[in-house]
């Protein structure tokens, strides 16, 4: 606060004095922000992790603890591997959930896609052992209340995603194409929508399908790391 006492005696209209006050206040403010940031950082990180873990457990029935994994793209194509790490805020991290015996229940993945109004963020569970979707939960959406937000509450719609099979179609040396739905459902949006919320329900199905297609090959490529983390 040395600048401020200096200004008390000086002529307040001098440009240098104005400059000094502005810089002085700026520096003080910056320091204060830094202090609060440092003081709250640990709690915020913990809160974020707890929030995401909680969301992951709701889409992984039977899981009691989760570990985050990051894909380390060391080589070309799919020759990378999973690395367990604590960064649970990045969208590039997946969460693997384990039951009390330490067996892998499934992985929870965050995905985002365009809905009717704005971006919909959701988290869904996927079981690599059974190759099925385990369920999903909306994290953030601005869809129409009473219509679009029924994708969370309409049990007929939500139940379709419990045990929805994921198929990998081998296309030779290209990346395998992945689609949602069984033999009788040929395309992702053959998941039955909700009337009155057609766009939103399709958006949810498409978002999950696109995300599975993206992560499926990597999960398959290094499944053993995910499986053995708690055995």
């Amino acid at each position: 606060m040395s600048q401020t006492s200096l200004n008390k005696t000086a002529n307040p209209t001098s440009p240098w004095q104005i400059y000094l006050v502005v810089v002085g206040v700026g520096v003080t403010c910056g320091t204060l922000i830094l202090a609060v940031h440092e003081a709250t950082r640990q709690r915020i990180t913990d809160n974020r992790a707890a929030y995401r873990d909680q969301a992951a457990i709701t889409v992984l029935p039977g899981a009691i603890r989760v570990t985050s994994f990051r894909w380390d793209d060391t080589g070309q194509g799919l020759s990378g591997h999973w690395v367990a790490d604590g960064d649970r805020q990045s969208a590039e991290t997946i969460l693997a959930g384990y039951d009390p015996a330490g067996a892998l229940v499934g992985v929870a993945i965050e995905a985002a896609g365009r809905g009717y109004q704005d971006t919909i963020r959701l988290i869904y569970g996927y079981s690599p052992t059974q190759q099925v979707i385990l369920g999903f939960r909306i994290l953030e959406s601005r869809e129409t209340p009473g219509l679009g937000d029924r994708v969370e509450t309409d049990s007929a719609f939500v139940d379709q995603f419990r045990g929805l099979p994921v198929q990998a179609i081998d296309r030779g040396n290209e990346e395998p194409r992945v689609e949602l739905g069984g033999a009788d459902q040929q395309r992702a949006w053959q998941v039955d929508g909700i009337s009155g919320a057609t766009v939103t329900s399709r958006a949810v199905a498409r978002t999950i399908a696109e995300s599975v297609a993206r992560w499926f090959p990597r999960i398959e490529a290094d499944l053993s790391t995910l499986r053995e983390a708690h055995l």
Partner: peptide, 18 residues
């Protein structure tokens, strides 16, 4: 008493932003 009138708005808004 220490803030010159010309730098008023900028100073206030920085305090608020903090």
């Amino acid at each position: 008493h220490w803030i010159p009138p010309q730098a008023r708005i900028v100073t206030f808004i920085m305090v608020i932003a903090t």
